[in-house]
Simulated assay, not measured.
Amino acid sequence: MNILLRGLGVLATVGTISILAFSLPSGGEARGDGGGDALPRLTHKNWQQECASCHLAYPPSMLPKASWRRVMGGLDQHFGENASLDPVTQADILRFLEANAADAGTSQMGRRVMRGMGANDAPLRITETRWFVRKHDEVPRATWSRKSVGSAANCAACHRQAEQGVFDEDTVRIPK
């Protein structure tokens, strides 16, 4: 009887651990230690097609909802370019961005981005967030102006797996 009870206890423990392990998000999200900056792979046809046609389709969890509203509301003057979209496509992308924004509560990365940000803060640029500044504080200002980098907004210049949602320090390669 003792052996049977121990066996059932082991099975219950293994089963519980397995359920917990397989229900955790992958990459840095699962670590929860702030060290890994891997994001769940998000797909959205219009977001990928329209935003990534000019630059990295920035992960929605890098800005709060209010910021995405500002960005999408000013597409006719999108950082010096006219990136206007038809109203249906624009509204579709905005819904996606808001649903996955830093303050939507859907990712660990979003929670880290929101730390120290006020409820009414709506930075227009990811590079203006405290999270970004803190994560890049050791990067010399001159690095951003290198021709091979272009600006702090060019994540993919140094984060070689940015398009896959990987922004951790282990994969950074700063170009010369």
Score class of each variant (00 low, 15 high):
36 G>F: 06
36 G>R: 01
36 G>Q: 03
36 G>H: 01
37 D>L: 15
37 D>P: 00
37 D>W: 09
38 A>N: 09
38 A>C: 14
40 P>H: 12
40 P>M: 15
40 P>T: 12
41 R>W: 15
41 R>K: 15
41 R>A: 15
42 L>C: 09
42 L>N: 07
43 T>N: 15
43 T>Q: 15
44 H>R: 02
44 H>S: 07
44 H>I: 04
45 K>Y: 15
45 K>I: 13
45 K>V: 14
45 K>L: 15
46 N>C: 13
46 N>H: 12
46 N>V: 11
46 N>W: 05
46 N>K: 12
46 N>R: 10
47 W>L: 12
47 W>P: 03
47 W>E: 02
48 Q>S: 14
48 Q>C: 09
48 Q>P: 06
48 Q>F: 13
48 Q>M: 13
48 Q>Y: 14
49 Q>S: 15
49 Q>K: 15
50 E>N: 13
50 E>V: 14
50 E>R: 13
50 E>L: 11
50 E>K: 12
51 C>Y: 07
51 C>T: 10
51 C>S: 14
52 A>C: 11
52 A>D: 08
53 S>Y: 07
53 S>M: 09
53 S>C: 11
54 C>W: 08
54 C>D: 07
54 C>N: 08
54 C>R: 11
55 H>A: 08
55 H>N: 12
55 H>K: 11
55 H>G: 08
57 A>W: 02
57 A>V: 04
57 A>D: 03
57 A>H: 01
58 Y>G: 01
58 Y>K: 08
58 Y>H: 05
58 Y>R: 04
59 P>A: 14
59 P>G: 09
59 P>H: 12
59 P>D: 08
59 P>N: 11
60 P>L: 10
60 P>W: 04
60 P>V: 07
61 S>F: 06
61 S>R: 00
61 S>H: 10
61 S>N: 10
61 S>V: 08
62 M>V: 03
62 M>L: 11
62 M>S: 01
62 M>W: 03
63 L>K: 01
63 L>D: 02
63 L>V: 06
63 L>R: 01
64 P>T: 08
64 P>Q: 10
64 P>H: 08
64 P>L: 08
65 K>V: 12
65 K>E: 11
65 K>A: 15
66 A>W: 02
66 A>H: 00
66 A>G: 01
66 A>P: 03
67 S>L: 03
68 W>K: 01
68 W>V: 02
68 W>R: 00
69 R>S: 03
69 R>M: 03
69 R>A: 02
69 R>V: 07
70 R>K: 14
70 R>A: 12
70 R>T: 06
70 R>W: 04
70 R>N: 11
71 V>I: 14
71 V>M: 09
71 V>W: 05
71 V>F: 09
71 V>H: 03
72 M>L: 05
72 M>D: 00
72 M>H: 01
72 M>V: 03
72 M>N: 00
73 G>V: 07
74 G>R: 06
74 G>S: 06
74 G>L: 01
